[in-house]
Design a protein around this nucleic acid. Sequence first.
DNA 1: ATAAAAATACCTAAAAATCAGGAGAAAAAA
DNA 2: TTTTTTCTCCTGATTTTTAGGTATTTTTAT
Lengths: 209, 209
Amino acid sequence: MDKLLTAIVDDHPIVIEGLKTMLQNEENVQIVGGFGDGESILFYMKSNQVDLILLDVTLPDINGMDLCQMIKKESLSTVILILSNRTERSIIMQTIQNGASGYLLKNSSIDELRNCIAEVAKGNICFSKEVIDIISRPSKNELQGRPRLTRREKQILILIAEGKTSQTIANDLFLSPLTVDTHRKNLIQKFEVKNMAELIKVAYEQFIL
Amino acid sequence: MDKLLTAIVDDHPIVIEGLKTMLQNEENVQIVGGFGDGESILFYMKSNQVDLILLDVTLPDINGMDLCQMIKKESLSTVILILSNRTERSIIMQTIQNGASGYLLKNSSIDELRNCIAEVAKGNICFSKEVIDIISRPSKNELQGRPRLTRREKQILILIAEGKTSQTIANDLFLSPLTVDTHRKNLIQKFEVKNMAELIKVAYEQFIL
DNA sequence: ATAAAAATACCTAAAAATCAGGAGAAAAAA
DNA sequence: TTTTTTCTCCTGATTTTTAGGTATTTTTAT
C-alpha cells in the first residue's frame, strides 16, 4: 500500500511540528505539509493530491465545519480526521455531518491517533475514547432540564417550525387562534425563551425537533 | 467473556425471528427476547439485565430517538445498535446523539452485523459501509441549495436564534434597527422561508447553526 | 480602476407575536 | 373519585416582525 499523503492544518506551528514528529516514523503516513489556515490547504489541494487531512476545527480564516465541506468539494476521496480541543458534542457531530471521518481530542495518545488513522483510511468512522464518551453521554442539560411537552404542544411546535402563523395552525387543527396563542405562551415559559426563534433553537439543541 | 445478553426490538415478528436465527450460533451473543414495542422492552429492563439492544427506529408506540434516551436512562451500560431501513442522515445522527452506539441498514450482511456487535461491545461506535456513505456524502440539497450568507447575516442569524429583537441586536452591533430589519428580510428571502421560526429550523437542518 | 457584492439606513402599513391577566371543560392520573 | 394536568377560549394593550419599496457608502473581486 502506498503511503497516505497527509496534510496537517492547524494554526499553532507547535502542534504541526509535534504531529510531524509523532508521525514521521509511521509506515503508512507521509506528511506533505503543514498549513496554518483554511485558504492555504485549499490552494495546495488544487495542484496536489492529499489522502488524509489532520484538521483543527478552530482556524483563523474559515471554521472547521465549512472547511470540511470545501475540502470534500475539492476532493471527495480525501479523508478528514479532526484534531481539536473542542469537546462540545454539537461540534463533533457537525464535523462528521460535514464530511469528517473521525474526531480526536488533542490530548489523545499516539496509539489512538495511529489507530484512528488506520480506521479512517479503511473508510470507517473513528473516534477516540473520550470523544465516544462525549457523544454517548447525554449531557445534563440535555436530558435533565428538558421540559416535558404535551402532545398538543409538540404538535404545535412542529407547525411553528414550519413557519406557520397562529391563524394557519388554528385552521389546520380546527382550533381558535387564541388557543394556539396560549400554547405559544406556554411553550415560551416552559423553555424559558424569549420568542419563537429561540424556541426552535433550543428545541433543536435538545433534539426535540 | 460472558455472552452479551441481547434483546431485539422490532415490530415485525419476521425480523425478530430472522435475527434470532442469524445470531443463535454466535459465541458472544445470547438472545434474551424479542419485543414488539418500546413499552415492553422498557418494562423488561426494569427486572432483567440487558447488555445489547438491537433496535428498530420505527416502532408503534415510541419513536426510536426517544426510546434510546429512555433505555440509557434505565441502564447507561446497555449498548444500543440500531437496525433500520431509514436512510435519512438526520435520523442516523439523531439516534447516535440520543445514545445509540451504531447504525446498520436492515439489508446489511451477517458479517457486518457480527462486526458491528463486536465493535459496539468494545465501546466503539460502528456503522455499516452504506451508512458511512450516507453520513459522509454531503447530500445535494444540503451542499448545493444552501444559501451563501455574508458575515453580517450569519452574525445576525445567530443573535436572532438567541431570541434577540432587532432593537437589541442593533444595540449589540451598533447599528440602526432598520439595518437589522433589512438583514432579516434578506435572510428570509435567501432561505425562502416565511418567518424567523422557520429560518432557524432550516438553518439547523442545513448545519449553518 | 471599475464593477459587483455587501452593508448600511430609511419609509409606510399591515400582520403577527408577545405580555399579562383569567377561567371553564375535558382528560388523565393518583 | 378526587385531584391535577391539559386543552380550550377570552380581553386588551403593546411590541415586533413582515412586506413592499429606495438609496448611499464600503468592501471585495476582476
